[in-house]
Design a protein around this nucleic acid. Structure first.
Lengths: 162, 162
DNA sequence: CCCTACATTTGAAAATTTTCAAACACTACA
DNA sequence: TGTAGTGTTTGAAAATTTTCAAATGTAGGG
């Protein structure tokens, strides 16, 4: 496989993976491109590499920056914005995921509370309440593992620094 | 908050959560409805509760069944199909998630292999290869935590059976 | 073997998302 | 203050996804 094949195929794989995870496929393409490019790239360069107009690139790049997956880097004497993948992009993607799981826990928590009082009087609400407690327990347990994993990953990274 | 409020609000919250995770919002609605309903429901009942025609319900129900989030249950003397949430629906949703993370590991693995030979000759490919190794390491570590979490959840469930 | 009661599939309509080209706004520098 | 080189926003077009109503398929009971 040639260098260009590797690049194109990885970009395509990320494009599909991001789409499957419910994000825009352009997000995946930009992430993949910056992930494997040693130097920071300008919007124009990204636009050129991905064969897309600058409008969407600009918007998605901002979203990715908001989620700390990529960052702007200042290059002296240059007026363009340059982007690169953040140092711990995999860990960061995971942290973003954990925050949506935290929302799930809070959902369970909230509905368990709100249904508690009514549960005694109504068997259907009692069932509802039980499910919400299960939900809360599940995501609470999950969070402890998320913390442990991130700790383990931080250690592993420290051992073999980029 | 009344019983109906609880129900509607949970369904709405699941609808949004599923959409945010990249699934159809109807999926979230059906999951929420079955999650909090003690008895199994027919397509017609689901259709009635969610105020939607049966076509999409039928399709999404099959998809949910394929992903083991809901299941058909046979009710003697009835000709309709009845659906309920599977016993460990939270755990199952998580298992589905792990399988998409497994794909990520395999992606890293595959591209790390394919770029290994070329890496010595070309610094850009060397960088590519390094990133793919990082990716493989990340998702490999993640899988060990997934296994541990599922084990812990199974234990917790055993302690407080539904 | 036909009917009835279902579930599923299909094709079109509606809604949403993605993309582009062009207009606009901002910043650095002359 | 004007100008050139940027990034951003916008409105329309294209593509995709969701939804519905109707047609079709299927299994059980007569």
């Amino acid at each position: 496989m040639t260098k260009d094949d590797l690049k194109l195929q990885l970009i395509d794989a990320y494009s599909q993976a991001y789409q499957n995870l419910g994000y825009s496929s352009l997000m995946g393409k930009i992430v993949a491109l910056l992930l494997i490019t040693p130097e920071a790239l300008s919007l124009d360069q990204i636009s050129e590499e991905l064969q897309m107009s600058k409008g969407p690139i600009s918007q998605i790049a901002r979203r990715l920056k908001d989620h700390n997956l990529i960052e702007k880097v200042w290059i002296p004497g240059e007026r363009k914005d340059y982007y690169r993948a953040t140092e711990d992009i995999f860990g960061q993607a995971f942290r973003n995921y954990t925050s949506s799981m935290r929302k799930n826990r809070k959902l369970g928590e909230r509905f368990a509370q709100h249904s508690e009082a009514l549960a005694a009087a109504d068997p259907e609400v009692a069932y509802f309440n039980q499910r919400m407690q299960e939900m809360e327990a599940f995501y609470t347990l999950m969070e402890t593992f998320h913390r442990q994993f991130l700790q383990a990953w931080d250690q592993e990274k420290q051992a073999v620094p980029g």
